[in-house]
Amino acid sequence: MNFLKLFKLTLPVMTAYIPLGMALGILAASNHFSIYQALMISFFVYSGSAEFLLVTFIVANETLLGIFITLFLLGFRHFFYTLTILSELKNLNFLRHYVIFSLSDESFALLSTYQKDFESVSNKHKRSLYYALLCFLNQSYWLFGVFLGFLFQNNIDIDYSGIEFSLSALFIVLAYDAYKQNPNPKILFIAFFIGFFGFLFIAKAYMLFACLSIALVYLLIRKNYVR
């Protein structure tokens, strides 16, 4: 593991985060947010769809309680991410606090998929640095995309429709890459089950349903699960 390999791992995220961040920057600029407000939301909230909702809620004069409850439920999946790699985080130094803060869906997917590569780094401080760098690179791509989108909206008059599909494309690429690392047919079955029943019956709470379902299936199939 080295910085160049780490950077290559984040390239799929970069190709999606920049256009998706641009979509957020365009949305913020269209609703008369300043560049500083857009970047602050992106840095401190840093939860993809939650940022889009936050901008929409602010424009609609939503109450603080309504914003809090909605964003809390939307970001609740991040609790599961941290719990999943808790044993690895305990072995990191103070940089683990930044890793926990910036553990987005995509960063978690990369850390989980290439866990063995990170564990091969015996030096505790280097491993902590690599974890933090991966998360930092991904967050940098997002912030850069927001900045570009804000500038484009204010200076270039073109049609940006369809740019939001970059998020779906990113999840498809990451899921395919994870399956190549572990071509287990059970993964396909679980994905089909969660996708079919989630969209069919509880589309409005799909993300929470997906996280709870994955956690339940994991506990059921792993008999030697240890807290």
Results as ranks from 00 to 15, higher is better:
Met1Ile: 09
Asn2Tyr: 10
Asn2Trp: 13
Asn2Glu: 14
Leu4Glu: 10
Leu4Met: 11
Leu4Lys: 14
Leu4Tyr: 13
Leu6Cys: 03
Leu6Lys: 02
Leu6Gln: 02
Phe7Asn: 08
Lys8Leu: 13
Lys8Ile: 12
Leu9Gln: 07
Thr10Cys: 07
Pro12Glu: 04
Val13Asp: 04
Val13Asn: 03
Val13Met: 08
Met14Ser: 12
Met14Gln: 08
Thr15His: 06
Ala16His: 04
Ala16Glu: 07
Tyr17Gly: 03
Tyr17Val: 05
Tyr17Cys: 06
Ile18Asp: 05
Ile18Glu: 03
Ile18Cys: 02
Pro19Gly: 00
Pro19Thr: 00
Leu20Pro: 01
Leu20Asn: 00
Gly21Thr: 01
Met22Ala: 09
Met22His: 05
Ala23Pro: 07
Ala23Ser: 14
Leu24His: 15
Gly25Trp: 00
Gly25Val: 02
Ile26His: 03
Ile26Val: 09
Ile26Ser: 00
Leu27Ile: 12
Leu27Pro: 04
Leu27Glu: 05
Ala28Cys: 15
Ala28Gln: 04
Ala29His: 01
Ala29Arg: 05
Ser30Leu: 09
Ser30Trp: 06
Ser30Pro: 02
Ser30Ala: 11
Asn31Glu: 11
Asn31Arg: 11
His32Tyr: 09
His32Lys: 10
Phe33Thr: 06
Phe33Val: 03
Ser34Met: 04
Ser34Ile: 04
Ile35Ala: 13
Ile35Tyr: 13
Tyr36Pro: 10
Tyr36Trp: 14
Gln37Leu: 06
Ala38Trp: 07
Met40Lys: 11
Met40Gln: 14
Met40Phe: 14
Ile41Glu: 01
Ile41Arg: 02
Ile41Gly: 04
Ser42Ile: 00
Ser42Cys: 02
Phe43Gln: 02
Phe43Ala: 01
Phe44Arg: 03
Ala50Asn: 04
Ala50Leu: 03
Ala50Met: 01
Glu51Ala: 04
Leu53His: 06
Leu54Ser: 08
Leu54Val: 08
Val55Ile: 08
Thr56Asp: 15
Thr56Ser: 15
Thr56Leu: 12
Phe57Cys: 03
Phe57Asn: 01
Ile58Ala: 12
Ile58His: 08
Ala60Thr: 13
Ala60Asn: 14
Ala60Leu: 10
Ala60Gln: 15
Asn61Val: 12
Glu62Arg: 09
Glu62Ile: 11
Leu65Gly: 10
Leu65Val: 12
Gly66Pro: 09
Ile67Ala: 07
Phe68Tyr: 13
Ile69Lys: 08
Ile69Met: 15
Thr70Trp: 02
Leu71Met: 11
Leu71Asn: 06
Phe72Asn: 08
Phe72Arg: 04
Leu73Met: 08
Leu74Ser: 05
Leu74Trp: 01
Gly75Asp: 14
Phe76Cys: 15
Phe76Trp: 11
Phe79Arg: 09
Phe79Gln: 11
Tyr81Met: 03
Thr82Arg: 12
Thr82Tyr: 09
Thr82Leu: 11
Leu83Thr: 15
Thr84Val: 13
Ile85Glu: 00
Ile85Arg: 00
Ile85Cys: 08
Leu86Asn: 14
Leu86Ala: 15
Ser87Asp: 11
Glu88Cys: 07
Leu89Lys: 06
Lys90Val: 09
Asn91Met: 06
Asn91Asp: 01
Leu92Lys: 02
Leu92Val: 01
Asn93Phe: 04
Asn93Met: 05
Asn93Cys: 07
Leu95Thr: 12
Leu95His: 10
Arg96Val: 06
Arg96Tyr: 13
